[in-house]
Computed example of a mutant assay.
Amino acid sequence: MTSTTPHPAAPRTVPITVHPVAGPGAEDVLVATSGPHEGSVWTGTEDGAVVRMSPDGRTSTRVAETGGRPLGIEELPDGRLLVCDAHRGLLAVDPDGGAVEVLVAEVDGRAMRFCNNAAVASDGGVWFSDSSREHSIEDWKADLVQLGRTGRLLHRAADGTVTTHLDGLAFANGVALAADESWVVVAETSARTLVRLWLTGERAGSRELMSDDLPGYPDNIARGSDGLVWVSIASPRDPLVERLQRGPRVLQRAALGLPEALQPAPKRTVRVQAYDDAGRVVHDLSADGTRFHMVTGVREHEGKVWLGSLHEAAVAVLEP
């Protein structure tokens, strides 16, 4: 794996606008780029709903129920929404009638524990992450603290065939494709890295670090309309968490057994970064975390940067 360029010393602070959503925990965010809902903003909430928001973010409507916990959301070539459901797996959702089709529920005969984020290729193939073989979304802190390396980067071909391409990832999370689909990149939340897998050319099949030593824990990622890979930073680097990661399992379990208020927790911050294809930081943005925090979804669209959050009943917008 290759090393990367240094990160900026400090992000640039920009204004933030918060838009309430009809449901708690709007984890990811998607801006539709085609079809009858072009310009609409989509998210999924903790209570299992898929929600459509108006382009200005002022109104929201629940349009489907997955029966699980929707996380990453993308557009499929047939006009449906691709939803990574942490409980049910990879789903296709009709944005009008709300019908839900399960595309992938298990891999190699075993149910996925934590389907998280995805990117859709031009041929209809889907690259997606399964964050952990051991922990569900309800136990995400355990996977982070124990530095579990059971995450995977998977691919579902248009014919339904599912293949594991990267294994042993430390909390596999956000996924994005190169503009020419020559590589795919996946975020490792626990390790604070972006891992790139080359798909074409002389390096096809090899992996490298697109960026390492991120300033915090990356969550969902997405290629923006500006051609950059945008990365949500859910919380800044936590020295306590990293000491626990290096410590014995008994100490990790003891920390996780503490009352919730005493456990390591995300800080009230708002931060996103954007990378070019060489792994260089082009944008590093922050905002006031008083009314919105723990950014887990990011989508740049025509100059606006939309944000989702695992904990907020809202999405937010940055206008750099």
Rank of each mutant, 00 (worst) to 15 (best):
236 P>H: 01
114 F>R: 11
230 W>R: 06
177 L>D: 00
169 L>G: 01
313 A>H: 10
83 V>D: 05
19 H>G: 00
186 V>A: 05
227 G>C: 03
92 A>F: 02
248 P>E: 04
177 L>R: 00
180 D>V: 06
93 V>L: 04
291 R>H: 11
172 A>K: 12
96 D>Q: 07
316 A>N: 02
316 A>E: 04
285 L>Q: 15
300 E>I: 10
112 M>S: 08
9 A>N: 10
159 D>C: 01
88 R>E: 01
239 P>N: 11
193 T>C: 09
9 A>R: 15
179 A>L: 14
62 R>F: 07
20 P>F: 05
111 A>T: 07
6 P>Q: 09
11 P>W: 03
237 R>L: 03
4 T>S: 14
37 H>D: 11
145 V>F: 12
116 N>H: 15
96 D>K: 03
113 R>G: 04
130 D>Q: 09
40 S>N: 15
111 A>D: 04
191 A>M: 08
124 G>C: 09
59 T>N: 10
114 F>P: 10
11 P>G: 04
196 R>V: 01
43 T>V: 03
145 V>T: 11
181 E>V: 05
265 A>I: 10
9 A>E: 14
314 A>P: 07
109 G>V: 05
247 G>M: 12
283 H>D: 14
299 R>Y: 12
71 L>M: 13
308 G>Y: 00
271 R>M: 14
39 G>Y: 10
233 I>R: 14
145 V>G: 07
240 L>V: 08
311 H>S: 13
149 R>Y: 02
44 G>Q: 06
320 P>Q: 11
292 F>Q: 07
192 R>Y: 07
258 L>M: 12
12 R>W: 07
48 G>V: 00
57 G>C: 12
67 G>H: 08
151 G>E: 05
92 A>K: 06
19 H>I: 00
46 E>Y: 15
117 N>K: 12
270 V>P: 08
226 D>S: 03
26 A>V: 00
163 T>I: 00
219 D>A: 06
54 S>V: 13
259 P>W: 13
249 R>D: 08
263 Q>S: 08
